[in-house]
Simulated assay, not measured.
Amino acid sequence: MLFAFSIAPADGGSASVGDIVAEAVRVVRESGLPNETTSMFTTIEAETWDEGMEVIKRAVEAVLARSSRVSLVLKADIRPGYSGQLTAKVQRVEEALREPRE
């Protein structure tokens, strides 16, 4: 199952929040779960709902340690029995792009 999420401080502090967001990303990377961070979201792949939500919870707590308020946006692709989808979904789109248009 895939979890795409964005965590950011929401207490009106500095315009640049990168150093605080980095604390959340650090939690994700230390989790050992497959992950990818882009400019807007971090995506993780977990075997179970609980495993994924535990990492997200710890990432939120890392931001809360440096901010009095946190914003969380979360999207999940819940598809039991599938793994490797963090890269497989992108590969399928890339393959489709290589095919000529009809």
Rank of each mutant, 00 (worst) to 15 (best):
V28W: 05
P34V: 07
A15Q: 09
R26H: 13
I20V: 15
D11S: 15
A22T: 09
M1Q: 02
V28E: 03
P9S: 14
A22M: 08
S6D: 11
I7Q: 05
S6V: 07
D19L: 05
S16P: 01
L33T: 06
T37V: 08
S31I: 09
V17T: 11
A8L: 12
D19G: 07
P9A: 13
I20W: 00
V27I: 12
M1I: 03
V25I: 14
V25Q: 09
D19P: 00
G18S: 14
E30H: 14
E23A: 13
F5N: 00
M1T: 09
V28P: 02
S14W: 05
V21S: 06
E30Y: 13
P9T: 14
M1K: 03
A8S: 15
P9N: 15
S16L: 01
A10M: 14
S31A: 09
A10E: 08
A8R: 10
E30R: 15
A15L: 11
P34H: 11
D19W: 05
E23F: 02
A15G: 08
S31H: 06
D11A: 13
E30D: 15
A15D: 10
V21W: 02
E36N: 06
V28L: 06
N35S: 14
A8E: 12
V27Q: 04
S16M: 00
V17G: 05
I20G: 01
R29I: 00
S14A: 15
V27M: 07
I7D: 04
E23V: 06
F3M: 05
V17K: 03
S6W: 02
G32L: 10
A4T: 07
A8M: 09
L2Q: 06
F5G: 01
A10Y: 10
T37W: 03
I7P: 08
V27R: 00
G18E: 06
R29M: 03
S14E: 15
V17L: 10
D11M: 11
T37A: 12
V21E: 05
S6P: 05
D11W: 11
P9K: 11
A10H: 11
D19S: 12
L2I: 03
L33Q: 06
